[in-house]
Amino acid sequence: MYFGGAVLTWLVNILAGVLRGTGNMKLPSMMIVNSAICQIILGGTLGLGLGPVPQFGMPGVATGSLIAYSINIAIMSWYLFSGRGRIVPRLRGFRMRWALFADILKVGVVACFSPLQNTLTNLVFTHMLAVFGTAVLAAYGIGARLEYVLATIAFSIGIGSVPMIGVAIGAGRIARARRIAWTTGVVALIVIGGLACAAALFPDPWVRLFTDNAEAHAASRQFLRTVAPFYAFIGLASAMYFSSQGAGNVLGPVLAQTARLLFIVLGGSYLISQTAAAESFFSLTAASMMLLGALSCAAVAFTRWGPRKTGGKGRLSLASVGDK
């Protein structure tokens, strides 16, 4: 049922992206918070039953989520079509412009590989750690949950750079666009690094949220103290990825993720052949994060940003072929 209504999830994110593109970061953020609150209330009520509302189980939870998305779609659509935004969508006279689809897909298709590779990296590493038992797997899972939380914060930092860099490049101010990218990267590195180092120094409060098993607790503490400080490079890589989105070229950061995946596969295969301990795999994870951050920065540093003629009579679009 939820999958059948997945188009609502996509539409929410599309509308939020349109609003962010106009420079409005407040309303999309409020809608995300509103969505979470509505999902908890509606999903809990319909799933578990409350008062006169019968218990629908998992279909009720899915329905609550879809209703929450529909509410946000209605609010953001009203905001845009009412003229309160900086742009007003017009349905009258609408016609398909394939050149615009090409510009969107040029970034979107490549960007699709980013979450796929990230998920595949986690699956590969989980498979490698399975031989060490449930305690080590639990440690990796607990660390991954912290990474997801920090990735959300990194997203909130990085997404703000997309419209700023896009506008700067569209105006031909390439140097300004690069300053925005590096500033975003430094902020993400410091903020995520600070939070991650706090978790590494004091891992117990986070670990206790998930387990009270002594063996899993010890393995989780060791994992966080080894790996958590390097989550800062995940934040840095996320900032570089969003900056590249604003520049209209995400190939470099996506290839950086490919390199990280290959590094883990090859390094993990070597450690398996050497019957290495779990601690060596923890170090491999930390090293892969450093590699991802460094290569993502290199991608931004060495990719040329600037407007590009797409053919026709001098029409320009955002692309990464030539600084001005």
Rank of each mutant, 00 (worst) to 15 (best):
F263C: 11
I165N: 01
G166C: 04
E279L: 12
Y270W: 13
A168N: 09
S269N: 04
L266G: 12
N249M: 11
G166S: 13
R225W: 14
M240V: 05
R304W: 00
F263V: 10
R178F: 09
R304F: 00
I180G: 03
A219R: 05
S296Q: 04
L295V: 05
S283R: 15
A171C: 11
M164Q: 15
P229H: 03
F302W: 12
L261I: 03
A228L: 02
G268K: 03
A219H: 07
L236Y: 03
A237D: 05
A216R: 02
F242A: 04
A232Y: 00
A181D: 09
A218W: 01
A301N: 11
A286V: 08
F223D: 05
A199P: 00
T211C: 08
P253N: 08
T258F: 14
T275L: 12
I169R: 07
D204I: 10
I165H: 01
F282W: 04
A198Q: 05
T211Y: 10
M240W: 11
F233Y: 05
E215L: 13
A232R: 00
T275Q: 14
G194S: 09
A299C: 06
G193N: 09
S220H: 01
V300M: 03
S243C: 10
A299E: 04
N249I: 10
R208Q: 14
I190Q: 09
R179Q: 11
I190M: 13
G170V: 04
A196P: 02
R173H: 11
P229T: 06
A232W: 00
A168Q: 05
A301L: 14
R173S: 08
A199H: 02
M164F: 15
V167F: 11
E215F: 12
R304H: 06
G246R: 09
T226Q: 03
R225M: 15
G293H: 03
L209R: 10
W182T: 07
S269T: 12
S220W: 01
A259I: 08
A237M: 09
F230V: 14
T303P: 01
G235Q: 04
T184S: 12
G193T: 11
Q257Y: 00
R221C: 14
R176S: 12
F230I: 13
A259Y: 09
R260N: 10
A181S: 14
S273R: 14
I234A: 15
A299W: 08
L189A: 06
F281H: 05
A228P: 02
R176I: 10
L271D: 09
A219M: 11
A301Q: 14
L255C: 13
L271W: 08
A301V: 11
A299D: 01
I190P: 08
I264C: 09
F210P: 09
T285W: 04
I264F: 06
A171Y: 02
A232I: 00
F223H: 11
T275A: 15
M290C: 15
V300T: 07
G170A: 02
I180E: 01
D212S: 07
A256N: 08
G166I: 05
L295N: 01
V265T: 06
P205L: 07
T285Q: 12
A196C: 03
P203M: 03
T184M: 08
S269M: 12
Q257N: 09
R225Q: 15
N249T: 13
L291D: 02
Q257R: 07
A298R: 06
V167C: 03
S244C: 13
L291V: 02
G235H: 06
Y231F: 15
T275P: 00
E215R: 13
T285H: 10
F302L: 10
A294Q: 03
L284V: 03
V186S: 12
